[in-house]
Simulated assay, not measured.
Amino acid sequence: MSSPISDNDFDNLINDAGLNLDEPEPQAAPVDGPATLPQQDLSFFGKIPVNVTLEVASTEISLKELMDVDAGSVIALDKLAGEPLDVKVNGALFAKAEVVVLNGNYGLRIVELSGSALSGLGA
């Protein structure tokens, strides 16, 4: 069985180990400009398929109202005509866009990127 260690013996052990608990940690020297992180090659992300959707508008109606819908019914939506539409990538808002026709197909003209644009992922 070991005997209890005295406070004095404990202090000696701490000091012998080079742990000086009484003095504050020295502050790191300030670095000019922002710290630069090592560059990583993220180009492999550019090959991951994503689902891009255009959300025209939405609304919330009761189940009774939905049950009353038939051919010719009109459901009012929450966006004004001509307002930019939401472009979503895998369900997350990516940009605002307007619909264009390109070689007979619908297309999107991006008018505003959201704060979560994917430009950092590379091509």
Rank of each mutant, 00 (worst) to 15 (best):
E55Q: 11
D70M: 12
Y106N: 03
P84F: 01
E25W: 12
L63W: 04
D68E: 10
L66E: 02
E83V: 14
G91N: 12
E23R: 14
L13T: 02
S114H: 04
D41F: 06
V31D: 04
A28L: 14
K96H: 12
G91F: 02
T53M: 15
I110M: 06
V100P: 00
V99W: 02
P84E: 00
L80F: 15
P4W: 09
F45M: 12
P4D: 07
E23I: 09
I48K: 01
E55A: 12
Y106W: 07
L121V: 11
F44I: 10
K88I: 00
E98I: 10
N15I: 00
V100R: 06
L21Q: 03
N105T: 10
K79G: 02
L13A: 11
D9M: 04
Q40S: 13
S73W: 09
R109K: 15
G115P: 00
L102T: 13
S3W: 04
D41C: 02
E83I: 08
N8F: 05
L77K: 09
I14D: 02
L102M: 10
L121G: 07
E25R: 14
V69K: 14
G46Q: 11
S3L: 15
V89N: 00
I61N: 06
K88Y: 04
E55S: 08
G120D: 08
D11W: 02
N90S: 07
S6H: 03
L13C: 03
L21Y: 04
A57T: 00
K96C: 05
L80Q: 15
S58R: 15
P84D: 01
V56K: 10
L108G: 01
A95Y: 01
S2I: 15
D41A: 04
Q39C: 10
A81F: 12
A81L: 11
R109F: 05
Q40P: 03
A95D: 00
E83H: 14
D22S: 14
V100L: 09
A123P: 10
S116N: 14
L121F: 15
L102A: 10
M67L: 12
Q40C: 06
P84C: 08
G33W: 00
V31G: 06
G120F: 10
N90G: 08
P38C: 07
M1V: 11
K64D: 10
L63E: 09
V89E: 00
P4Y: 06
L66T: 07
L42W: 05
V52C: 13
D86M: 10
L85Q: 05
L54F: 09
L63F: 13
L19N: 05
G107V: 01
I48A: 12
L19V: 14
K64R: 15
L108Y: 04
A71L: 15
N103D: 14
I110L: 03
V101G: 04
K64W: 12
P4Q: 08
I75A: 09
K47C: 08
N51I: 06
N105M: 14
I61Q: 10
E55C: 08
L21G: 02
I110N: 04
G18A: 08
L19M: 13
S116A: 14
L80E: 13
P34H: 11
K47W: 07
L19R: 01
K96S: 12
P84N: 03
L102S: 11
V99S: 03
Y106C: 03
Y106T: 05
N103V: 08
S114E: 06
F44E: 12
A117W: 10
L77E: 03
A28H: 09
L37A: 15
K47E: 08
P30N: 04
N20G: 07
